[in-house]
Nucleic acid binder design. Structure first.
Length: 400
DNA sequence: TCGATTTGACCTTGA
DNA sequence: GTCAAGGTCAAATCG
């Protein structure tokens, strides 16, 4: 059908008036997280968040990705308290609560990909409507009192942490990306966002590496409906859930029974690309659910953000991980969102493929990537996810 | 004029 | 075999 090649920004969908980008660039005063020396931090999170692993996070802390991260740095860095950081930042809605986003993968059993990935968000709780997150990096500091537990949303926190980590260790990003990806959308998104957040604060050099992610990721995130909280306080999504780097064309909309929200159907505009996605959004324009189907058979159009080749690759990884939709055959249980293989990560294409959800074989199957082994992560991605599920879910909560 | 979105109708699928 | 719901098509409309 019609494809508009690479025109990224399609006409702003109704409702999507929210500028997601501007925000990225400049944000007013934002809370910043600094990785304080453990001491101070710990005192803050003294609740034992340090822990991590666990599910135990009765408090709401969850180890999740952050845990891994912290492990990563645990060798001796200030960063050790990632999980703590997050944990602290995350004290928020718990999964069980209404309004919690849920990532679910289901097997559609259909031929083409079988499984669909859907990111579902039940209803954004008010608390998530934080307007601008961006930037925490800039300051060393402290969260401003007024915003959430720590002055920032989960995502913010995560983003910040990520950013910092990146700063500390370049390699981290790779890891994080991968990692995040494995956790499916949420994490990825969050991480991705960080770049934007960071960009202003991070040193120029750093930006390049991250920016790409963010740029792409950012888009992706929206795709996932994750959110763009950065600048959009509340409805980021509106009509174009498409900012995942690919171009989408809406070809239908329908009121789904059982759902108060209408479902929109999108197709990838790339010629011959079979990828489709269904997006459900609430009345406010908030995306409540996105389901990808199929696999992109092309690379993501580059125009959107422009320029950074890296952006693609990086983003890819990020995204790839984010939603691995498609064929869950393989990823079904054990692999879940996680299964992204290095191959995929490396290939920019893959990036989105995952997102779009599909791919069969290639990515799936790799439960314990090397990095995991290196990091001594014993849990399988899935396990990790499960254990940390709360956290990352929270992160996902894009609420708005 | 072109491309995207809207929207009602039609087709497919599953119970 | 029937019905309901989901998914897709395609003409009309809009920017």
């Amino acid at each position: 059908m019609t494809d508009n090649q690479g025109q990224p920004p399609g006409p702003p969908p109704p409702g999507s008036s929210q500028p997601s980008k501007p925000a990225a660039t400049h944000d007013p005063p934002r809370p910043t997280i600094t990785l304080p020396s453990r001491t101070s931090f710990e005192s803050i999170f003294s609740s034992g968040a340090g822990g991590n692993t666990g599910p135990g996070l009765g408090l709401g802390f969850s180890p999740g990705p952050m845990t891994l991260v912290s492990n990563f740095f645990s060798d001796g860095d200030d960063c050790k308290s990632f999980s703590q950081l997050l944990a602290g930042a995350m004290t928020s809605p718990s999964p069980g609560e209404p309004g919690f986003p849920q990532l679910e993968k289901r097997n559609s059993g259909d031929n083409d990909g079988g499984s669909e990935f859907r990111f579902k968000q039940n209803r954004p709780p008010p608390m998530f409507s934080v307007p601008t997150p961006s930037g925490f990096l800039d300051s060393p500091g402290i969260f401003s009192p007024g915003q959430g537990p720590f002055g920032m949303t989960h995502q913010q926190a995560l983003a910040q942490v990520t950013a910092q980590a990146a700063a500390l260790s370049p390699s981290f990003f790779n890891f994080s990306t991968e990692f995040s990806t494995s956790f499916s959308t949420a994490p990825a998104t969050s991480l991705t966002q960080s770049p934007s957040l960071t960009s202003d604060t991070m040193p120029p050099q750093e930006i390049p590496s991250e920016t790409p992610d963010s740029a792409v990721a950012t888009k992706e995130s929206s795709d996932i409906a994750l959110s763009d909280q950065r600048s959009q306080p509340s409805s980021f999504a509106v009509d174009k859930p498409n900012d995942d780097g690919y171009n989408w064309r809406k070809y239908g909309q329908k009121q789904v029974k059982g759902s108060e929200f209408p479902r929109s159907y999108y197709k990838c505009t790339h010629p011959n690309c079979p990828v489709k996605k269904k997006v459900e959004r609430s009345v406010d324009g908030q995306i409540t659910e996105i389901i990808y189907k199929g696999e992109h058979n092309h690379e993501r159009p580059q125009s959107k953000r422009g320029k950074d080749p890296n952006a693609n690759s990086q983003a890819n990884s990020d995204m790839a991980l984010q939603v691995h939709g498609g064929n869950s055959n393989k990823s079904k249980e054990g692999t879940g969102p996680y299964s992204m293989s290095k191959k995929r990560q490396e290939s920019s294409q893959a990036t989105h493929d995952n997102l779009s959800g599909t791919s069969d074989s290639e990515e799936v199957g790799v439960l314990k990537p090397e990095w995991m082994r290196k990091m001594k992560i014993n849990l399988t991605p899935r396990e990790e996810i499960q254990r940390s599920g709360q956290n990352w879910r929270q992160l996902l909560h894009i609420g708005l």
